[in-house]
Simulated assay, not measured.
Amino acid sequence: MPTELEELVGFIANPSQQIRLVAIENLVPFSTSQPEVFKADKFVPIKNLKLLVKDHPQISEHVITILINLSADQEVLENLATDEKFLDTILGFVVLPNEPNANLLSMLLANLAKWDAFQSILARKQAPPKELGSDDLVMNQLMDLFVKGAEGTYNKDADYDHLSYLFADLTKHAELRQYFVRKQDYDGVIPITKLKVFTEHKSHVRRKGVASTIKNVAFDVPSHPAFLDEDDINILPYVLLPIIGNEEFDEEETMAMLPDLQLLPPDKERDSDTAIIQTHLETLLLLTTTRQARDLMRTVQVYPVVRETHKKVADEGVREACERLANMLMRDEEDTATQAPIETIAGDGDDDDDDDDDKVVEV
């Protein structure tokens, strides 16, 4: 005999819209506490929920919330991320300028990206709304949504901040990294340059996702010259600014820094999230892969920024990242086995000369 919860799950397929609404509202808490009930009868409840994404916005709001919660389960995640018709539905809705649940759909997409096969989104196409001004490539549409969402100029109900988490997960894959560093035909812009301007955005979600995306794309070493070229991607100022506070540098150091770093206001604050600071430091560490990049960073005085960050941020992860980066910048290039001592940011007495020091784990 079915339990009350099982009966409630059955009501989500009821012909009455009011009954469906009441059932869905009451089921939201169970999507985290008892997810197994939604997998009954060979995932019939999940099948019904996927259909209800098209229901009245009040219903679909709760439906999407439930699917976001349930996607933490690997079986449900696979079921959702491999359903092409379902993906067509949510991708078609998320780009609409009047979609009230666009932010929730962005969160769901970010979760679906955790399924490796979801990277096939790179080849997916759909007709864009004329208001978006994009082409038919879904990735370009999502990128344009993210940019316009920052100013609230596209959809009054959405900021699309969680798309940054989608980008971060997608860029774990080499093919997607290539997308982010390749100029797009429809607007002549390199996608990563659309993201870099948000490293100091007011939204914590947006800053965190963008930082992780930039770091993951930086694993593509052949793109490093473009990353560092002021006339190309020019990533350095956007990665350095979030880790700089209101400290004062001596005149010689300041004058050699990048122009964007020379005239900062006295109330300049570094990012409040130490995890984001660490991510940017790890991006810089990745960019030290080539001698050319290390020499450039020395010339524009990246080391003093790292030195002061190490002094001011009392976080073990940040301090360790600072030490690794400083060692890369200060080492003797004529004898790469020898690293110059850096008393100003020495560690806390821990001798860590592990061979993994120069490695960074992807987000």
Rank of each mutant, 00 (worst) to 15 (best):
P100E: 02
P259E: 09
E334T: 12
E362F: 07
Q141T: 10
D271N: 12
N48F: 07
L105W: 01
Q18D: 09
M143I: 15
V313E: 11
L87N: 12
P225Q: 06
V63W: 02
L27A: 05
T274M: 11
L21G: 00
R177H: 04
L166V: 14
A314R: 14
K148H: 13
L176S: 13
D351G: 07
K39D: 02
R307Q: 15
I214E: 00
A174W: 02
T213L: 06
T153V: 13
S120L: 11
G149V: 09
C322K: 00
N103Q: 03
P29Y: 02
L263N: 14
N14E: 07
P266V: 08
L287I: 03
G349A: 12
E320I: 05
T288I: 06
G209T: 12
D315T: 08
V363S: 10
D354Q: 13
P225M: 10
R331A: 11
N26V: 09
Q119V: 15
F146E: 07
T65V: 05
A321L: 04
V28G: 01
T283E: 04
E7G: 11
M297V: 06
S212L: 08
S71D: 11
A275S: 15
T3I: 04
F30G: 02
F30P: 03
N246H: 14
F167V: 06
Q34G: 05
A293Y: 00
L77A: 05
L132K: 01
E61Q: 12
E333S: 06
K215S: 12
M328N: 04
N140Q: 12
Y186N: 09
P129C: 08
P57K: 13
V210T: 02
M143V: 14
D135K: 01
D352A: 09
E84M: 15
T290L: 08
M330E: 11
K85R: 09
V95I: 11
A81M: 04
E6K: 03
V217F: 00
L132N: 03
N69P: 03
E362V: 08
L296S: 01
T338G: 02
N111W: 02
A321C: 04
S33E: 10
Q74S: 10
P35R: 05
Q141A: 05
W115F: 14
Q278A: 15
L96I: 04
L27H: 10
G245I: 03
I19Q: 12
G245A: 11
E251H: 13
I214A: 00
L52H: 11
S71P: 13
T82Y: 07
I244G: 00
D116V: 06
N103S: 02
E308K: 14
N246D: 15
P15S: 07
D88M: 11
I66Q: 05
L104V: 03
M257K: 05
K125D: 04
E269T: 10
N234P: 04
F167A: 01
S120Y: 08
G347R: 00
K215V: 02
A102F: 01
G92L: 10
R207K: 11
L122A: 04
V28M: 13
T289H: 15
L105Q: 00
N69I: 04
S60A: 14
D144R: 13
Q301H: 12
E308M: 07
V94D: 08
G209L: 09
F180K: 02
I19K: 13
E248V: 13
L105H: 00
Q278T: 08
L170R: 00
D229P: 06
V318L: 01
A40W: 03
L261Y: 01
M107Q: 14
Q74E: 13
M257L: 09
D335R: 09
A314C: 01
D185G: 05
A218W: 01
